[in-house]
């Protein structure tokens, strides 16, 4: 069944979109990731113009993170104070990111920057995850390993300290604000929630306890991606509601399926699978950038608009 997307102005198969949403939802349920970093490149692959893919991807992340945060609220694993500090940085970052996005779009370089950001971030995260999970697998085979926690002393020396009771921390607000800004920029340019950057940063940089990390990052992601969606809608007119709704519908069911499958598999194996997937998506994007394209010319997006 073909469906015409009013903003992307192309006709695509609705079942392909549902399937795409479903698969990404399943992966996000399986691995506990937002899925934004997978859905946006997959939308590029099926021919959605990158600005629409990024803006609509952000909209889809709003839905998946709301559904995720509700579960964490019931378990009381959300640090609202830390979330708000991260959010303050996130909104600033998202605003700056939107500004950069529009500037790059005027230069005709937005596709390149979006793709390069994906290659860089997916590459780094994918390889780190692969290394980490292979090591974990080895460790699991030998003996139950010890958990290391690195102490970053410089974090404790910064001014403007604040008490974060739910996380059991008394640290400066500067590092979380900076983490928030970075994630906000990524949300605007890449259409992702940024959980894949924020979660490691919260654990290793801020030293937050693992149990509140996911809930708190989801809490921040909801508002940053909501703000990003709104900004893209107002400045670029590039949010496609119809596309978002179909992706969300697929994603919602996929996520539940993923959670159930995930419960039956081993965590280490799951992480290796996710790492391989991330590396594969990154590789495909990099391949497209490096190999000489068959067609050197392209038509600028929005050049077709009146």
């Amino acid at each position: 069944m073909q469906i015409y997307l009013p903003i992307a102005e192309i006709s695509v198969n609705a079942f392909v979109l549902l399937g795409l949403g479903g698969i990404v939802g399943m992966l996000s349920g399986l691995f506990g990731v937002g899925g934004g970093f997978l859905i946006t490149p997959l939308l590029f692959f099926i021919g959605i113009p990158p600005p629409v893919a990024v803006a609509t991807g952000a909209n889809q992340v709003v839905a998946s993170s709301i559904s995720g945060v509700l579960a964490h609220l019931r378990r009381r694993t959300v640090d609202f104070r830390m979330g708000s500090v991260l959010l303050a940085g996130g909104l600033v970052g998202s605003g700056a990111g939107i500004y950069m996005f529009n500037w790059l779009q005027d230069l005709g370089q937005i596709d390149l920057v979006v793709q390069l950001s994906y290659v860089i971030f997916l590459g780094i995260i994918g390889l780190l995850m692969l290394q980490e999970s292979v090591r974990a697998l080895m460790r699991a085979k030998r003996s139950p390993g010890r958990v290391e926690r690195r102490q970053h002393l410089w974090v404790h020396k910064l001014p403007l300290k604040m008490k974060f009771r739910a996380s059991g921390l008394y640290i400066s607000v500067i590092p979380p604000v900076l983490v928030g800004v970075l994630v906000g920029v990524l949300a605007a340019i890449m259409g992702v929630g940024g959980g894949f950057i924020m979660v490691p940063a919260m654990i290793y940089l801020l030293g937050m306890p693992t149990k509140v990390v996911v809930g708190t990052s989801l809490f921040q992601i909801i508002f940053v991606t909501a703000f990003t969606t709104l900004m893209h809608a107002v400045t670029n007119y590039s949010v496609d509601i119809l596309l978002a709704v179909i992706l969300i519908l697929g994603g919602v069911f996929g996520a539940q399926l993923g959670t159930r499958i995930g419960a039956r598999l081993k965590a280490e194996q799951l992480r290796i699978l996710l790492a391989l997937l991330v590396v594969a998506v990154c590789g495909k994007l990099m391949f497209d950038l490096v190999v000489e394209p068959r067609e050197l010319y392209s038509i600028g997006y929005r050049g077709t608009q009146g």
């Binding site: 909501a226 709104l230 809608a233 509601i241 978002a244």
Partner: peptide
């Protein structure tokens, strides 16, 4: 949707968010 997106982008954006919130909460 097309007219709303270009003529009332703020309302359109809010509509996108409300739909996303409903879908997330509903699921």
């Amino acid at each position: 949707l097309f007219n709303l997106a270009y003529e009332q982008p703020l309302i359109y954006g809010l509509l996108a968010l409300v739909l996303a919130a409903l879908a997330g909460w509903g699921a």
